[in-house]
Design a protein around this nucleic acid. Sequence first.
DNA 1: TTGCAATTCAAACAGTTGTATGAAACTATC
DNA 2: GATAGTTTCATACAACTGTTTGAATTGCAA
Lengths: 220, 220
Amino acid sequence: MASDQTRSAILAAAERLYADRGFGDVTLRDIVAEADVNLAAVNYHFGSKDELIAELFVTRSIATNRERLRELKAAEEQGGGRAPIEVILRALVGPTLRGCLGPENQRSTAARFMIRASIESVPPIRRIKNREIDHLRKFANAMRRALPERSDEEIYWGLHFALAMAHHTIRESERLTKLSDGRCDLDDVDAIIERVVSVAATALTAGKATGKAPARVAVR
Amino acid sequence: MASDQTRSAILAAAERLYADRGFGDVTLRDIVAEADVNLAAVNYHFGSKDELIAELFVTRSIATNRERLRELKAAEEQGGGRAPIEVILRALVGPTLRGCLGPENQRSTAARFMIRASIESVPPIRRIKNREIDHLRKFANAMRRALPERSDEEIYWGLHFALAMAHHTIRESERLTKLSDGRCDLDDVDAIIERVVSVAATALTAGKATGKAPARVAVR
DNA sequence: TTGCAATTCAAACAGTTGTATGAAACTATC
DNA sequence: GATAGTTTCATACAACTGTTTGAATTGCAA
């Protein structure tokens, strides 16, 4: 068998199993059985189990990040170097949400894998996420250009909250469906994106641009 | 040694180790060494490792939930059965945020343990979190009373986003500090609470109360 | 075909894990 | 102080883990 047939058989099998059963209880032996290759092949081709997981996650998140930047760049070029805040936020949360949500029965293996990665967060994945800061900084810069009167602190909180809503929706989509008894439609991804974008944009633009936290409401 | 001295020595040691090193690489042998008790004591007193973790988490989250409900009840009684939305939201996210954030060097073991539980999410903890829906429903009901003109869908999304911002801030506090280069002050818990409450309240009250998602911004 | 490198394979390795056991030590009751 | 019930203890268990090894096989170039 050609070398990279084995390689990609392992990748495919691993992604499928991790997506279905989580990182916690999938062993190398499960993976090689599913891929129908020899046990030693994983270490031969990837070095270690962690590097296999890392490669899976890197591949997927590079794709998402590239799409994010593509949308951001397109928007800024169209606006002559300055895009509306809503469009920036949409470029930030859109690719992730579109990649992970949507009708459950038609979610790709990649989507289910990324949901798992978002929920379980094993060490090799955490290491990679920690290197995402430079990527996020590009969005912070774009947001600064869109809202020059806002303080950096406000910009970062807005970025942070936008990611919070997107990731929490991915992580807890099942619970939200149950809690709302189906009233919140988790299948309409575009509506969810607009909802997140709208709330984040409001948070970033509402109130005076003092750079300070909103005054505390006096009731208690 | 009296029976519950061993029990609580195990609980204390386990919480400390899990808080410091995460669930992934703390074994029963680490715990019993730290607690200076026999290996078999864990299974004798708790039945299994998972039940030990579950007991730790249940204890802490019961405390948080009790505090949440106390604040909610107090607010509703003071308002004659109807509390302002900001106060409800503050009762929802305040106890959690106060329990997990604050100056790093003075965070309790319990706080650090809850942060871990929020990041790593092992099976026994996930099982318990899934049973929290009834608890959250009480807040949904209070929010409905506070905003009777809002649709249920809007209420649930608002509740969901409030939790999203609170939990994501706990999970990613370190990254936000790094990303913002220290501009976002993660030590001022009260300011964070007000920020989350303010954004969530705005999301719940802004715009027409049509019960539909905000209209999509036309730029792209 | 020969030679060499890349790949596959079965098997074993070395270590760790949570749990179970049965005897010993302890504690409280009568 | 004997008895019954708890709790502790050292130890073993059984299973599983990721990784390594060295020989066998394959693929390809000369």
